[in-house]
Amino acid sequence: MSIQHFRVALIPFFAAFCLPVFAHPETLVKVKDAEDQLGARVGYIELDLNSGKILESFRPEERFPMMSTFKVLLCGAVLSRVDAGQEQLGRRIHYSQNDLVEYSPVTEKHLTDGMTVRELCSAAITMSDNTAANLLLTTIGGPKELTAFLHNMGDHVTRLDRWEPELNEAIPNDERDTTMPAAMATTLRKLLTGELLTLASRQQLIDWMEADKVAGPLLRSALPAGWFIADKSGAGERGSRGIIAALGPDGKPSRIVVIYTTGSQATMDERNRQIAEIGASLIKHW
């Protein structure tokens, strides 16, 4: 067993022997301040990774656009098919120029040779490549099948209805392509620590998230040296922004954090800054 596999296998073990965790309302004060600064709703939840206990939450059962955070769930569904012998990570998928959609920095470079399922998941999570996500959605049967996968996990809230990039439209009061912070946090925890996926697939999923290259201005910008984070960000229309993450000190994750916002007129930089400040408060009061 590799060191990384050992780390993920012992996530519940280490967490069980940690000192009790206590909620700190100071972080919620910052979440509410972010709402004021952005002029928009902000949803927040913080779960203990081992027990699933909610440590703090704000608007945990209000719907927010998922945006690209759905790509972690998508690759979880792909990995479940791999575990069941219905898919192979090494299978190569070929596609054409007509398949390319807006923001496809990886797939646009491989029109000639195609990409493997493993490479597509890596591109979808680490670079948020939209064509990679659409190609992977095709392998599982489309958005409705991802929703069905989530329902089978016990998540009857999260739903995907459309493809990239239309799913980022974020129309107010439109339930399409949305989740709730509580539902997303619980589902992410199941994917990373539950028995739904094999140990190898859980490790692969967290490795992809740990290698995320496009979430630097968010929670990662607030992390002290030595902290662990595996995350996936999302951005959408109407001032929408979000991030889902597993993080913790001492090089291992111990909490799940989900943050979503929508309806702001603020710039992307300002949305990023507010999420980073929430992260800084979380870490300060850990």
Results as ranks from 00 to 15, higher is better:
residue 183 A to Q: 12
residue 114 G to H: 05
residue 9 A to E: 05
residue 119 E to C: 04
residue 244 I to N: 02
residue 117 V to E: 02
residue 81 R to A: 10
residue 205 L to I: 09
residue 42 V to M: 10
residue 134 N to Y: 03
residue 28 L to K: 09
residue 245 A to S: 10
residue 138 T to L: 12
residue 216 G to I: 07
residue 175 E to S: 12
residue 76 G to Y: 05
residue 279 G to W: 03
residue 59 R to K: 09
residue 122 S to Y: 14
residue 50 N to I: 10
residue 70 F to A: 10
residue 218 L to E: 02
residue 37 Q to M: 14
residue 27 T to N: 05
residue 171 I to W: 14
residue 9 A to M: 14
residue 217 P to R: 09
residue 269 D to A: 14
residue 241 R to A: 04
residue 106 V to Q: 12
residue 28 L to C: 07
residue 237 E to M: 15
residue 286 W to R: 02
residue 212 D to V: 04
residue 251 G to K: 14
residue 143 P to G: 06
residue 13 F to H: 06
residue 267 T to L: 10
residue 24 H to R: 13
residue 250 D to M: 12
residue 17 F to C: 09
residue 219 L to P: 04
residue 99 D to F: 07
residue 252 K to T: 12
residue 214 V to C: 06
residue 237 E to C: 12
residue 229 I to E: 02
residue 217 P to H: 10
residue 214 V to K: 08
residue 231 D to N: 05
residue 252 K to V: 14
residue 66 M to Q: 06
residue 95 Y to P: 04
residue 176 R to G: 06
residue 151 H to E: 12
residue 269 D to I: 13
residue 17 F to I: 13
residue 143 P to N: 04
residue 23 A to N: 06
residue 260 Y to K: 00
residue 200 A to C: 10
residue 246 A to T: 12
residue 110 H to F: 12
residue 191 L to M: 14
residue 86 Q to E: 12
residue 109 K to D: 10
residue 250 D to N: 15
residue 172 P to L: 12
residue 129 D to Q: 00
residue 275 I to C: 05
residue 67 M to S: 09
residue 165 P to Q: 06
residue 131 T to P: 03
residue 163 W to A: 10
residue 135 L to C: 06
residue 173 N to E: 14
residue 276 A to S: 13
residue 53 K to N: 14
residue 168 N to T: 07
residue 95 Y to D: 01
residue 34 A to S: 14
residue 187 T to Y: 03
residue 225 A to S: 13
residue 156 H to M: 08
residue 149 F to V: 09
residue 197 L to S: 05
residue 71 K to N: 00
residue 219 L to C: 04
residue 218 L to P: 03
residue 235 A to T: 06
residue 258 V to Y: 01
residue 89 L to N: 04
residue 106 V to W: 07
residue 215 A to D: 02
residue 93 I to P: 02
residue 120 L to D: 00
residue 101 V to P: 02
residue 267 T to P: 14
residue 192 L to D: 01
residue 182 A to Y: 14
residue 94 H to P: 09
residue 254 S to R: 12
residue 243 I to T: 04
residue 190 K to A: 13
residue 31 V to T: 06
residue 161 D to I: 04
residue 61 E to S: 12
residue 118 R to V: 10
residue 82 V to G: 05
residue 190 K to N: 14
residue 201 S to Y: 05
residue 89 L to R: 03
residue 53 K to S: 10
residue 179 T to C: 05
residue 140 I to F: 06
residue 247 L to S: 02
residue 141 G to M: 06
residue 282 L to V: 12
residue 261 T to V: 12
residue 1 M to W: 01
residue 161 D to Q: 05
residue 58 F to N: 15
residue 34 A to F: 09
residue 67 M to V: 10
residue 150 L to N: 05
residue 280 A to R: 14
residue 93 I to C: 06
residue 210 E to N: 10
residue 227 W to Y: 07
residue 20 P to M: 04
residue 35 E to K: 03
residue 52 G to R: 05
residue 132 A to S: 08
residue 244 I to Q: 01
residue 277 E to T: 13
residue 110 H to A: 09
residue 105 P to F: 05
residue 264 S to K: 05
residue 107 T to A: 10
residue 81 R to P: 00
residue 70 F to I: 06
residue 272 N to K: 02
residue 206 I to N: 08
residue 270 E to M: 13
residue 69 T to F: 01
residue 234 G to E: 01
residue 56 E to Y: 05
residue 111 L to P: 07
residue 143 P to Y: 03
residue 194 G to Y: 08
residue 193 T to G: 15
residue 122 S to A: 14
residue 237 E to S: 15
residue 268 M to I: 10
residue 267 T to C: 10
residue 90 G to I: 11
residue 148 A to I: 13
residue 220 R to E: 03
residue 60 P to A: 15
residue 23 A to T: 04
residue 55 L to T: 08
residue 242 G to N: 03
residue 57 S to C: 09
residue 226 G to H: 11
residue 36 D to P: 05
residue 149 F to Y: 10
residue 118 R to K: 11
residue 69 T to N: 02
residue 84 A to G: 13
residue 164 E to D: 01
residue 25 P to H: 13
residue 139 T to H: 10
residue 175 E to R: 12
residue 121 C to H: 00
residue 266 A to H: 10
residue 216 G to C: 08
residue 1 M to R: 01
residue 83 D to P: 02
residue 21 V to C: 15
residue 85 G to H: 11
residue 165 P to T: 11
residue 167 L to R: 02
residue 109 K to L: 14
residue 224 P to N: 06
residue 274 Q to R: 11
residue 85 G to P: 01
residue 30 K to A: 10
residue 237 E to P: 14
residue 228 F to A: 09
residue 217 P to F: 07
residue 252 K to W: 09
residue 192 L to W: 08
residue 186 T to G: 14
residue 260 Y to D: 00
residue 82 V to C: 11
residue 162 R to T: 08
residue 185 A to I: 03
residue 211 A to Q: 14
residue 83 D to H: 04
residue 249 P to V: 06
residue 140 I to Y: 08
residue 161 D to A: 06
residue 262 T to N: 10
residue 223 L to G: 03
residue 212 D to G: 06
residue 183 A to H: 12
residue 187 T to N: 11
residue 179 T to E: 00
residue 12 P to V: 11
residue 67 M to H: 07
residue 277 E to Q: 11
residue 241 R to N: 04
residue 225 A to Y: 12
residue 29 V to D: 13
residue 64 F to A: 01
residue 136 L to M: 07
residue 15 A to R: 01
residue 16 A to G: 15
residue 198 T to I: 06
residue 18 C to R: 01
residue 184 M to G: 01
residue 187 T to M: 08
residue 54 I to N: 06
residue 113 D to A: 10
residue 240 S to P: 01
residue 178 T to H: 02
residue 92 R to Q: 09
residue 184 M to H: 02
residue 115 M to C: 07
residue 107 T to M: 05
residue 159 R to A: 06
residue 194 G to K: 09
residue 98 N to F: 15
residue 99 D to C: 06
residue 186 T to M: 15
residue 67 M to E: 04
residue 148 A to S: 15
residue 83 D to S: 06
residue 249 P to Q: 09
residue 222 A to K: 15
residue 146 L to H: 02
residue 32 K to P: 01
residue 231 D to K: 04
residue 131 T to M: 05
residue 89 L to S: 06
residue 192 L to A: 06
residue 119 E to S: 09
residue 137 L to R: 01
residue 22 F to I: 07
residue 282 L to N: 03
residue 236 G to V: 02
residue 72 V to T: 09
residue 231 D to H: 04
residue 205 L to F: 05
residue 121 C to T: 04
residue 234 G to M: 05
